[in-house]
């Protein structure tokens, strides 16, 4: 654990209702983040309305209630918005950039950006890898 992790300040040593996760000194929890598998983001797609979702284990399409099947989503897409966090969060040191990325024919996913900069709305981004379990994207050249 990094020396600057704020675990010692969480509830001043008292257990809390919130599960902070192991990144800030709590117990580990199951990882719910989207997963990159080679050249695709894994998820589910509705067999009726084609609704895409980067989650697993859900019982039906949350949009039309149709049955779901496993799907692989292309890693390219456009930025819905982005920001640069200037505060440390979990194990992340400031500054770090985040964006909502609307994958082509896929879901909106939260990604970390390789460079700590805001990108224009609609900028072309591509997921290039994972970093500490987070999707990592770069501005497509």
């Amino acid at each position: 654990m990094a020396a600057d992790a704020p675990s010692s300040e969480l509830g001043v040593g008292r257990p809390t209702k919130r599960r902070p996760g192991s990144a800030v000194g709590g117990l580990p929890v199951a990882d719910s983040r989207p997963v990159l598998d080679g050249d695709a983001v894994l998820g589910l797609r509705c067999t009726v309305c084609r609704y895409p979702v980067a989650q697993t284990g859900i019982p039906w399409c949350p949009s039309c209630y149709g049955p779901l099947e496993p799907a692989r989503f292309d890693t390219g897409g456009t930025a819905f918005s982005s920001t640069v966090a200037r505060i440390p969060v979990g194990t992340r040191k400031a500054p770090f950039a985040l964006a909502y990325l609307d994958l082509d024919d896929g879901p909106r996913v939260l990604v970390h950006l390789a460079e700590p900069e805001v990108v224009p709305l609609g900028a072309r981004l591509r997921i290039t890898g994972m970093d500490e379990g987070d999707l990592l994207a770069e501005v497509a050249s």
Binding site: G21, S32, A54, G133
Partner: peptide, 9 residues
Amino acid sequence: ATDPEGAAS
């Protein structure tokens, strides 16, 4: 930490 975006900081 149990939220996909919370876990992603």
